[in-house]
Structure formats: structure tokens, C-alpha cells
């Protein structure tokens, strides 16, 4: 009973943290399950994929109802994230646990450094503004993906970025928003809010394309997936409700500390096996 409740609480904390900082719960679920509960990395990745699909489904529904997410753009890009996820899901079973742990540590360090860098947001905003001023290219392949007030550009580069996001998602059990949001916002000229909502919409298809591989390879344990996914779902829901009351600067510093500590633990796991 105690372990079940701990898993639920851990999932809630990961979901809330991720929701408050817009990172999704996946980035903390894998370390929680491997370092906290002793699961193998691939099993943790499988459970994390399930958790990110659950949280994405709930929030994407709201984003679509409010017409913030760009469905056409999301579907076009998820064609590439799904291909990436398919490859990533197959590659994940060729890599050793140590290699996966090292990759995850690198991801954690990357996210920690990104959160610490100041001024990036302003630079991104300026670039996006420039993108909006750009009249943009004509629709390619008969696809008009632009939305109200902005034109989508650099579809080819966006597709390449999405392919990479799919691989990373499948390998490490994260939603891939860390890659997709900057790609859409900085490269394709999509407003940050639309990029975030569209990325959220895409997570479901991306994660399910690789989750089936983990499922049939026996790497998704239903006993672990149940309480963890409920926890992440509840935490993410609570996080979105209290976000406006919390000082995100303090939270960001705390989160960076957690990420750095977790990265060190993952590196130790990568070295010691």
C-alpha cells in the first residue's frame, strides 16, 4: 500500500513541477522510477510514455476547445515525430542501459542550462516577431498551415526538428516539447502559446507510436503505470490551477537543483551500470 501511495505522490509532484514549468512530467518520471523505485530504465521510459499521453490528452482537449492549438500544423509535424518515434522505439532496444542513462543525464543537463540562461525568452520573442512580420512562403504541397495573425515558414526545417523530437521522445520517455516548441516558435514563426498548445496535441501520437513497441516488448508494467499515470494526471491538473499564484523564479531555481542532482545520479548509473 505504502509503495503505491508513494508512487502516486511522486507522480503528482512530477506532474505538478512539469506543468508549472511547461516541461511535462516525463522529464522527472524516469528518474523517479529508476532512482526512487529501482525500475530498469527502459521500463521507466515505457511508463513515462503512458503518463505523457494521459496528460497530453487532457490538456490537448482543452487547447482544441479554446482553439489555441493549430490542428493542421500539429498533424503535419506529427507525421515526422511519429516516424522519429518509431525509429527511436526500435533504437532504444539496441542501446545498453548505461548508454540510455548517459543520454538521459545529458538531457537533464541541457534542460537545466536552458532554464538558467536568461534573455533567451526575449531573443526568442524578437525572432518570432520577425517571423510574423515575414509575409512567409506560399503554402507547400497544397497545405495551408498558417493561423490567425501568423504565417508558418520553414516547413522543411520544422519537419527535420520534429523527426529529432520523435526520436528523443521514444528513447527517453519524454513528450518532446523541449525540442518541438523551440522549433515551431523560433524556426517556423509560430507564436509561443500556439506552439506550446500544438506541441501538447502532438505528444499523444508521438508517444503512442513508440509506446506500442515498449508494450509488446513487455516493458510497460501495468501495476506501475496505473498509480504513476494517475499521479502525473492529478499533479499536472493541480499545477495548471495554481500556476498563477506561484513565484516561478524560485520554482525554476529549485527545479534546476533537482535536475542537476538527478543528472549526477544518472551519470553515476551510466558509469557503474
Amino acid at each position: 500500500m505504502a509503495i503505491g501511495l508513494l508512487m502516486l505522490a511522486g507522480g503528482s509532484a512530477a506532474g505538478m513541477f512539469g506543468s508549472l514549468l511547461g516541461l511535462g512530467g516525463g522529464i522527472l518520471i524516469v528518474p523517479l522510477l529508476t532512482l526512487g523505485f529501482g525500475l530498469e530504465l527502459r521500463q521507466a521510459v515505457g511508463v513515462s510514455l503512458v503518463s505523457v499521453i494521459v496528460t497530453s490528452g487532457a490538456s490537448a482537449g482543452v487547447y482544441l476547445q479554446r482553439n489555441v492549438a493549430n490542428l493542421r500544423l500539429g498533424m503535419t509535424l506529427e507525421l515526422f515525430t511519429a516516424i522519429g518515434a518509431l525509429f527511436g522505439g526500435l533504437i532504444a532496444f539496441l542501446l545498453s542501459e548505461q548508454a540510455l542513462a548517459a543520454l538521459f543525464a545529458a538531457l537533464l543537463l541541457y534542460v537545466a542550462v536552458s532554464l538558467l540562461r536568461t534573455g533567451t525568452a526575449e531573443a526568442a520573442q524578437r525572432q518570432a516577431e520577425a517571423g510574423r512580420a515575414d509575409p512567409g512562403a506560399s503554402p507547400r504541397f497544397g497545405l495551408d498551415l498558417s493561423g490567425p495573425g501568423y504565417r508558418v515558414r520553414n516547413l522543411g526545417r520544422g519537419a527535420a526538428g520534429s523527426l529529432g523530437a520523435g526520436v528523443v521522445s521514444a528513447l527517453l520517455g519524454i513528450g518532446g516539447g523541449l525540442v518541438k516548441v523551440p522549433v515551431m516558435h523560433l524556426l517556423m514563426g509560430v507564436p509561443l502559446r500556439v506552439a506550446t498548445a500544438t506541441s501538447n496535441l502532438m505528444i499523444g501520437v508521438t508517444a503512442s507510436a513508440s509506446a506500442v513497441i515498449y508494450l509488446f516488448r513487455g516493458e510497460i508494467d501495468p501495476y506501475v503505470a496505473g498509480p504513476t499515470a494517475i499521479g502525473v494526471f492529478l499533479g499536472a491538473s493541480a499545477g495548471s490551477r495554481v500556476a498563477h499564484r506561484i513565484d516561478l523564479r524560485i520554482l525554476r531555481i529549485l527545479f534546476v537543483a533537482v535536475l542537476l542532482y538527478t543528472a549526477v545520479q544518472m551519470l553515476r548509473r551510466a558509469v557503474s551500470g
Binding site: E78, L79, A82, G89, F93, S208, A209, I213, F216, R217
Partner: peptide, 19 residues
């Protein structure tokens, strides 16, 4: 349709390589 095709391929590969 292409996305559905990729998901179907993923399922087929998953069943084919079932461990």
C-alpha cells in the same frame, strides 16, 4: 492516412519483434 500508416507499422513491428 500517412500517420495512421506509421502507427500501424509501429504496431506490426512491435508484434513482429515481440520479446
Amino acid at each position: 492516412a500517412l500517420i495512421l500508416g506509421i502507427i500501424s507499422l509501429s504496431v506490426a513491428l512491435a508484434i513482429g519483434t515481440e520479446g
